[in-house]
Design a binder for these strands. Sequence first.
DNA 1: TCAAGATTGTACCGATTAGTACAGGGCTGG
DNA 2: CCAGCCCTGTACTAATCGGTACAATCTTGA
Lengths: 188, 188
Amino acid sequence: MAKTITERADILPRLAEIFREYGYEGASLAIIGARTGLGKGSLYHFFPGGKEEMAAAVIDEIGQWFEHRIYEPLRNSADPQAALMSMCDDVSAYFHSGRRICLIGAFALDNVRDRFAARVNDYFAAWRSALADALQRRGDTASRAETLSEDTLIAIQGALVLARALDQPELFQRSMDRIRADLSAQAT
Amino acid sequence: MAKTITERADILPRLAEIFREYGYEGASLAIIGARTGLGKGSLYHFFPGGKEEMAAAVIDEIGQWFEHRIYEPLRNSADPQAALMSMCDDVSAYFHSGRRICLIGAFALDNVRDRFAARVNDYFAAWRSALADALQRRGDTASRAETLSEDTLIAIQGALVLARALDQPELFQRSMDRIRADLSAQAT
DNA sequence: TCAAGATTGTACCGATTAGTACAGGGCTGG
DNA sequence: CCAGCCCTGTACTAATCGGTACAATCTTGA
C-alpha cells in the first residue's frame, strides 16, 4: 500500500481542528479518516489507544504550545508587563480573533470531561498560576494577582462562549481589548 | 400497557439534566429512556420529532424560565438596581452555585451548535438586551450599559467554564460576588 | 357501559459506531 | 539485492445508534 511519510505530530493540528469542529463524540473515525486522509490502519498505528489517545495527544500538544508560548514567558520574562501584553496578542491570534473556540474549555463542558479531567484541570491551573506569577513579579499583591488572573481567564473563556453563541467574533476582540486595559492598569 | 399520567412539561426538567450531563450526542435514547422512566413509545409520543425536538423543547423551557424570572424584571421592575441584584441571586441559585453548567453555553460550543443556533442566539441576545435595559434605566449611558451587560454575561459564562474545568464551584461564587460589586458601582 | 382516543412496551429496522485482524506493499539497512 | 520492519487499505465484528410500527392497555366522555 501507499506510504504517506506522515509523522504523528503532523496530524495533531488537523485532529485538533476536527475535534474543535465536531466535538469528541461527534468526531467519528469515518470523519477523522476523511479529514486527515488517513485510513483506520494508519490511525490505529499512530494511536493504538484509538480516539481517546488521539484526543489526549491533541490536548497535550495544545498544553505544550501554551507552555512554551504563554506560560514560560509569563514566568521567566525579564519584563513581566510586556509578557502580559504579549500573552494578549498571542491568545487573540490563537483563537483567530474569536472565530475559533477553546477546545479545552469545550471539553470542560462536555460529557467527556471526566475522561480528560486531569488534563483540562492542568491546562487552566498552569495558565492561572503563570498569570498570577507575572502579576506578582510586576508588583501586584498576591491577593490582587489571584483575583486578576482568575478574572482574566474567566473573561477569555466567557468571551469565546459568547462570541460563538451570538456569532459575533468582534465581541471577543472587544473583550480582549478590555482585558488588555485591565492588565495595563497600575497595580494596587 | 401502563399509563403513567406524565405531562410533557413534567419531563422537560429531567431531560434538561440529562442533556447537561451527557451532552446532546451523548444522551442516547437508551439513557433518556432509563433516566426518565419512559419507553421509546412514550418519548416519541410526546416528542414526535425525536431527540432534536426534545432538546429544542428543553432550550425553549429554559428560555422561558429566564424570560419570566430574569429578563422581564430587568425590563419592567420599578427598581432596576434591585432587579440587577435579584438577577445575581437567581443566577447563582440557578447554576447551583457553580456546580451546574449552562446548557445553552455548552450547546454553543458543541458541534450541534448549528442545529440550535437561532435558539442559542436568542437566549443570550435577550439576556444582554434586558440587562442593558436595566442599566440604562438606572442611569448608565447607552455605551456603558452595552459594555457592562456584555462583560457581565461573559463573566458568568466564563466562570461556569472555569469552575467546571478546575472543579472549583467556589470560583463561580467568587466571580458572582465581583459581578455583584461591578453592578453596584455608581454609573458613569 | 362502552367506544374512541391517548398512552405505552416491544420488536424490529437500516445505518453507523469504535475497534480488530491481517495481508500486502513500500522503504531501508546490511 | 533482499530480509525485515514500517506503514496502510480492506474486510470484518459486535454493539449501539435514532427512529418506526404496531398491538395492547388505559383513561375518559357520552
